[in-house]
């Protein structure tokens, strides 16, 4: 996104297409990509992203007493959004607290529904100037703020697994550029490769203190009718995995009012959104991007 804005602002082009497409479910390229992330860690049976995020989540359980009781609200809440989204892979599949808690372990502390989906499909987003966008048929959605922070480094030197992750500094940068406060955000689309990723990201953005996640998520905060809707398409956990474009495109579509039965506003007993926060991650919490979008 920063590259896109740079290309537009410099006059190098008039439109930037950000796209992602993958036959990850029907082919084996996603599994090969994840295997390629693994070097000599494979000696110990450590593979892919789920293992790395499981290490992060376990450390977080130790440091601030989070765990499945917090994460179930994320898995179940996002599923309720997916059940309103006919495009979602899990549209027809309900999930209860009990269903979450009795699902099999994959890489503990993650059960089945702590893990995102592997999907066939794609997403795309076109970015252009405000002047040009004014003439287009959809409502104008602008970028208010952008932030990026990459603590990077090797997993074996990673002291950010239980936060603060790159979300802390990236979030501060995006809010500073936007000139708004956290309370001005109407809904969030958070990169959710695993349930824990949603918790640590919102925590690092300052929505709650460490260990406050369970109370914050409890009682329907993020689901339809909630006071802070999160991942309103179902997200990577329950709609489809299209990397950072799942959260980004959902944020844009919601602000444009193009989301049908899951549209934020009176239809889902939520606030009609004007300002949306979206996030993206890479590696094992090694890179982070935060976007704040606004409907004009």
């Amino acid at each position: 996104m920063l590259h896109a804005v740079g290309a537009l602002e410099s006059g190098a082009c008039k439109y930037v297409l950000i796209s992602y497409g993958h036959s990850a479910r029907s082919g084996d390229s996603m599994l090969r990509m994840l295997s390629d992330m693994t070097g000599d860690e494979a000696i110990y049976g450590h593979f892919g992203a789920a293992g790395g995020y499981a290490l992060a989540a376990r450390r977080a359980m130790h440091e601030f007493n989070t765990g499945p009781d917090s994460w179930k609200h994320i898995a179940v809440g996002q599923r309720a959004w997916a059940n309103l989204n006919p495009q979602a892979m899990m549209y027809d599949s309900r999930l209860t607290d009990e269903g979450y808690m009795t699902a099999k372990w994959l890489i503990e502390p993650f059960r089945l529904f702590d893990n995102c989906l592997i999907s066939d499909g794609g997403r795309a987003c076109i970015i252009t100037s405000v002047e040009r966008a004014r003439d287009l048929k959809h409502p104008l959605v602008t970028i208010m703020g952008l932030g990026q922070h990459n603590p990077s480094g090797d997993l074996q030197k990673a002291d950010y697994l239980a936060g603060p992750t790159g979300a802390r500094i990236a979030g501060e940068a995006a809010f500073s550029m936007a000139g708004i406060a956290r309370d001005d955000i109407d809904a969030c689309q958070i990169y959710d490769c695993f349930t824990y990723t949603v918790e640590i990201t919102l925590q690092d953005y300052g929505y709650f203190e460490p260990s406050g996640g369970k109370d914050w998520f409890m009682g329907g905060t993020i689901e339809p009718g909630g006071r802070m809707p999160v991942n309103t398409s179902g997200g990577l956990l329950s709609e489809a995995y299209h990397m950072g474009l799942t959260p980004l495109t959902e944020g844009v579509m919601q602000l444009m009012g193009r989301c049908g039965p899951r549209q934020l506003g009176p239809e889902t007993n939520t606030k009609t959104p004007e300002i949306m926060l979206c996030s993206d991650n890479g590696g094992i919490l090694q890179t982070h991007a935060c976007y704040i979008l606004r409907r004009i």
């Binding site: 494979a42 049976g45 450590h46 593979f47 892919g48 293992g51 499981a54 290490l55 992060a56 376990r58 450390r59 130790h62 099999k104 372990w105 994959l106 890489i107 503990e108 502390p109 697994l161």
Partner: peptide, 10 residues
């Protein structure tokens, strides 16, 4: 930190 694998990816 630690992770308990309940599935064999190899």
């Amino acid at each position: 930190s630690f992770a308990v694998y309940h599935a064999a990816y190899q």
